[in-house]
Simulated assay, not measured.
Amino acid sequence: MSFFVSDRAPANRVSGYKRRIVLYCLGALLLLLVAVAMGAAIGETAIPLDVIGKTVANRIFGAGYTLDPIEEGIVWSYRISRAIVAASCGAALAVSGAVLQSLLRNPLADPYLLGLSAGASTGAVLVTVIGIGGGMVSLSVGAFWGAALAFGLVALLAKAAGGGVSAQGTGQIILAGIAGSQLFNALTSFIITRSANAEQARGIMFWLLGNLSGVRWDDVWLAVPVAVGGVAVCIWHMRALDAFAFGADSAASLGIPVRRVQVVLIAITALMTAVMVSLVGSIGFVGLVIPHAARFLVGVRHGRLLPVTALTGAVFLVIADIVSRTAIPGQVVPIGVITALVGAPGFALILIRGRRMR
């Protein structure tokens, strides 16, 4: 009898662990669905949840429910797509921040550290104001290529400074990112001042602060795969990220291919950030604050940290978008303003609490 008990105990523990993982995943999915439903229901015109459910059933399954065409159009063509993109953007930016903070061992690192936001802003301004591409290049495409150019410049500058993305190059990347951000921000300001009229300048400044108003289903098919794929790649490297907590040299001694992992993870965070910025503009503090909040909840092990960070970032940005649409009746506040108003005090509290815990 004792043989069977000892033989079954490990299997029971494994089975219990798998059940907990399944329950956590189902709970996270349910919470995300609730957040998206809230994003579709809450707005200047409140729409009941049953109308949202029937709209989804009509559009996906052809259920044939009779609904007000205006309400159905608002839910499907505007709010649901907007909430999904917000969730994808929040998850991607938050996970990018967590990965960069661990990889570079810098608690102040965030997705815009590499100059991506500034480069995307410059690309968008070039398309909008100067008309690069002759009308064949959209604002999002221009922003994406601007972000890619900025990342390439930062990588080259960091390499020239003595390390690039090598084991000794994290400090150079941080400094190169600051320099690249300042350069592209200056270029953006110069182009706006030199060539933009008042209406163009106002639209660009609103976009630079984060704007989900123009998001549609075409953007969903880009944002969701990039966010899901990018987060999955980061989670795949969770053990390597745990090793980087002790430094690049310690990670190398544990058999981690340091250079390859750094190149892959920095490239994937750059891709996620570039795509999200090209879709919704610059949204600050998500990649900086959410990872720290997640660490207080589940600790520093990336097997738990990254999924919780992704979920928290997704829900946070959906709620921030709701607030941006409802805070001032008849107006939409840039979502970057909302994240900054919440993120700055939140980060201050995290710093104070962290100091007390030490």
Rank of each mutant, 00 (worst) to 15 (best):
A167M: 03
L139Q: 05
G133W: 02
V125H: 05
L153M: 13
V154P: 00
F151N: 08
G131Y: 01
V129G: 06
F151E: 11
K159F: 12
A161W: 09
L153G: 12
V141H: 02
W145Y: 13
A167C: 12
F144P: 00
T170E: 15
G135P: 02
A148L: 15
G131D: 03
V154R: 00
A147D: 06
G146Y: 02
L175A: 10
S166C: 13
L139M: 12
S166T: 08
L175H: 02
G164E: 08
L157C: 05
V141C: 12
S140Y: 03
F151Q: 13
G171T: 12
L149W: 06
L139S: 12
S140F: 02
G163P: 07
A147H: 13
G146W: 09
L149T: 09
I132L: 07
I130T: 08
T128C: 09
V165F: 13
G164I: 05
I173G: 03
F151R: 08
V137Y: 01
T128R: 06
G177R: 05
L149G: 02
I132N: 05
G131E: 07
L139T: 13
S138D: 03
T170G: 14
A143S: 06
G164D: 03
G135N: 04
L126E: 07
G133E: 11
V141Y: 10
V137W: 05
L149S: 12
V165I: 14
G134I: 00
V137I: 15
G162H: 06
T170L: 15
L126G: 07
G169F: 08
K159A: 15
L153V: 10
F151D: 11
V125N: 04
G162F: 08
I132P: 06
K159G: 15
V125S: 00
V137M: 04
G146R: 01
A160Y: 11
M136G: 15
S166P: 10
G152N: 09
A160I: 10
A143K: 05
I174C: 07
I130P: 09
V129S: 03
L153T: 10
I130Y: 06
V137E: 01
W145V: 11
L156M: 12
G152A: 13
M136L: 13
G152C: 06
Q172D: 15
T170R: 14
Q168I: 15
G133F: 00
V154D: 00
G162V: 03
A143M: 06
A155C: 13
F144E: 03
A160S: 13
G142E: 01
